[in-house]
């Protein structure tokens, strides 16, 4: 206590020095290239999107030529396609995120034991992640086609019928979730494996001495220790999943009907096919704000979980 008081006193007693101007300039000059690059690649596109979302865009000059206030936002909020795309995205996220998290951490837990060839299996897990999403979507589209696809051929051998994966609205959504899960679960597995390997061994040794069984160790030690990692992985995957559109574009093209028309695909179509750039910018801003708000909520939740465990 006495030492703490003395240290506080010493801190207070330290004379405040004014930073010389030359030092201040030097510091900022080092930071300036990074700031300029950051502004150019991050702030400018966002600000430009914001600007055209409040304007009508002149396709002749590709510039915002007239301030229209909230008109584009009003049009977007009245657009049935926009709300359908938001709903489709919500359904996709509600299925894909939990499946990927549970599968990812589950697989990591199962392959965490020491066994020969574990390194090779981990390396193989990387393959779906490095396949370009458009290629992955196209290959899955071929494999799932009821006429030529391998999947239905195998199902047929087992007498499981000939499901129309891409033509039935419910199955098409399932297809999207399956492809996205195939692609991104390995990412979760890799993070979870690293986290599992970093868990303190002495805690498990103590549990063994106390006679804890497999389930007790999982539920009372592993899961609580992994909660911060699970939460952080969830946020990272959430930010990736909410932007997904390439797989939908290649595999289902948003169909049948508009059953898999996720919001980013819808925005892309409105911008680059319908050339409605101003309305698309308004949609992008709405999605950005909603994503930021939800991400903020998830981060608060993550912090609370970290505090609780």
């Amino acid at each position: 206590m006495a030492v703490e008081t003395a240290m506080k006193g010493a801190r207070k007693a330290r004379p405040r020095k004014t930073v010389p101007m030359i030092d201040w300039l030097t510091r900022w000059s080092f930071m300036m290239p990074a700031i300029v690059i950051l502004l150019a690649v991050l702030a400018y596109p966002i600000l430009y999107t914001l600007e055209i979302s409040f304007s009508s865009l002149d396709l002749g000059s590709f510039t915002a030529n007239e301030w229209v206030g909230w008109e584009n936002y009003g049009d977007v909020l009245k657009d049935r396609g926009f709300w359908n795309a938001m709903k489709v995205t919500g359904i996709y996220l509600a299925w894909a995120m939990p499946i990927q998290m549970i599968l990812g951490f589950g697989i990591a837990y199962l392959i965490n034991a020491e066994w020969k060839g574990r390194g090779v299996v981990r390396a193989l897990f990387l393959i779906p992640m490095v396949v370009a999403p458009v290629v992955a979507g196209g290959i899955w589209r071929m494999m799932l086609d009821p006429l030529w696809g391998l999947v239905n051929y195998l199902l047929g051998l087992l007498g499981l019928g000939n499901p129309d994966w891409l033509g039935n609205p419910t199955l098409a959504m399932a297809t999207l979730v399956i492809i996205d899960t195939w692609r991104w679960t390995p990412f979760v597995v890799l993070i979870a494996t690293a986290a599992l390997m970093a868990l303190p061994k002495d805690v498990f040794e103590a549990a063994d001495i106390d006679g804890a069984n497999w389930w007790t160790k999982l539920w009372s030690i592993t899961v609580p220790l992994l909660v911060p990692i699970i939460a952080a992985t969830f946020v990272v995957r959430w930010l990736g999943a909410v932007k997904m559109f390439d797989i939908a574009l290649a595999a289902t093209r948003g169909g049948p009907g508009d059953a898999t028309n996720v919001i980013n695909l819808y925005i892309y179509e409105q911008a680059f096919r319908s050339l409605r750039f101003a309305e698309s910018a308004a949609m992008a801003v709405i999605v950005l704000v909603m994503t930021m708000m939800l991400t903020g909520l998830f981060l608060i939740g993550t912090r609370k979980l970290e505090d609780n465990y």
Partner: peptide
């Protein structure tokens, strides 16, 4: 001049009818 926007609308709604959604 808004041909592509019109075509996209037709694509959306014709596809919904073909898929049996409406």
């Amino acid at each position: 001049p808004k041909s592509d926007a019109v075509q996209q609308v037709l694509a959306d709604e014709v596809a919904r009818a073909i898929a049996g959604q409406i």
